Simulated assay, not measured.
Amino acid sequence: MSSIRPLPAELAEKARQELNEDSKTVSSDLQHIKEWIKKQPHLRARTDDQWLLAFLRGCKFSLERTKEKLDMYYALRTTAPDLYKINHKHQLFNEILDLGSFIFLPKGIGLTKPAVALVRPGAYDPNKYTVSEVVSVSNVIEKIILMENDNAIISGVQNILDLENVTMGHFLQMTPVQMKKMVVHMQEATPFRVKGTHYLNTPKGFEVIFNAMKNLLNEKNKSRLYVHNKNYEEMYKHIPKDILPAEYGGNGGTIKEIVEYWKQKVREYSAFLDEDLQYGTDESKRPGKPKTAEDMFGVEGSFRQLEFD
């Protein structure tokens, strides 16, 4: 158990009450999952205690649900490789990170309050980058959060989706298949519990994408969508202004400073991230039916008929 970080008392109590965490059984639960991984011929997965603990917590210590989520997490690397193609060594990685399209805010609301991610699709040029490439970069950051941010796992995450400067070019990248991949990743593969998604600066045409995405979500996540548009005051009731970047009137550092913070984190985690590239699934060895992209996400289509100014 020495490889697991001790939790502050308040957070440990939250994990006990909300996630069924029991310090007496964590060790045997971890052992159970490790033994299960060993027996899966198709699965190459990390077995660090802290890593597996994130998945156990995200699944409220249901061993079966943890196995399903871990399996899906690694299967996506095979069935949706475009979501992982820009890794930390890729020439585009820092270029995309510099845009600040996805940043996890280092300044938290408090020990037992959800962590906050800020997503700004309008910060990238859709003629130069794809949404998959931007998601790839965010997935690298996500791996680091899974390893080191207990609060994000235990208390959950709130997302701010600021659609300022989003264009038709951005919307056309959001095909039904692309949306399905992103929803499966968020809802079925990662152990983050999304406590709210807050939409700001919504442009014309937004409803088409919003409703299509909403239809893919489970009821719990549907009930946690908030469209604030220009009403920032409404958002501040959920996410205190103080923790936001300076560009949003907060004291959480500038977006550029937050990007630099994440670049440093990526450097610190470079060995971990190098090692992580070997993990995934070999669907030809999966017992039963292999998972395929077509089965999981359907076939390509687009929203070309969108009306947009």
Rank of each mutant, 00 (worst) to 15 (best):
S270G: 08
G156R: 02
D150Q: 07
R193P: 01
F297V: 10
V166F: 00
Q173E: 13
K60D: 04
Y261N: 07
E300G: 06
F104H: 14
G58L: 01
N231T: 07
R57Q: 08
P6I: 12
K69E: 08
L105I: 13
L225Q: 15
I4Y: 02
V299Q: 12
R16M: 09
G100Q: 00
T66F: 00
L105R: 06
E294A: 13
L146I: 10
V208Y: 07
N201H: 15
Y232I: 06
G205W: 00
I243F: 02
G280T: 01
E219S: 13
Y74R: 03
V137K: 00
H185W: 12
Q187S: 08
L19S: 10
G288F: 08
I243Q: 04
T130A: 12
K237R: 15
L273R: 02
M182R: 09
P176W: 09
V134L: 08
T130F: 06
S284P: 01
E68A: 14
G196E: 02
I141K: 03
D309M: 10
L118N: 02
Y73R: 08
L7Y: 03
M296T: 01
A75T: 15
P81G: 03
V131L: 12
E257T: 05
K34G: 10
E35P: 05
G156N: 04
P126W: 00
P6Q: 15
N94L: 13
T112H: 10
D125Q: 08
T167V: 14
M168L: 15
V137S: 02
Q17K: 15
F102C: 12
R77W: 07
W51M: 12
R304K: 11
L118C: 08
G205L: 09
L63P: 02
P176L: 09
T112I: 14
N201P: 04
K128D: 06
I144D: 05
P240F: 05
A80H: 02
N165V: 03
M72S: 15
V208K: 12
L70A: 08
D295V: 06
Y226L: 11
K14R: 14
I160S: 01
E283P: 10
K143H: 13
A271S: 15
N221P: 11
A12S: 14
S28N: 14
G298E: 09
K241D: 07
Y269H: 12
V194L: 13
E283H: 07
N159W: 10
Q278L: 10
V26C: 04
K220L: 14
H238D: 09
L52Y: 01
I96G: 01
E307W: 12
R57C: 05
Q40F: 04
R120W: 07
E148Q: 14
E64Q: 15
S62K: 10
P41D: 14
V299C: 09
V208M: 10
K181H: 01
V177N: 03
I37Y: 01
G252E: 06
S27I: 12
H228Y: 03
W36D: 05
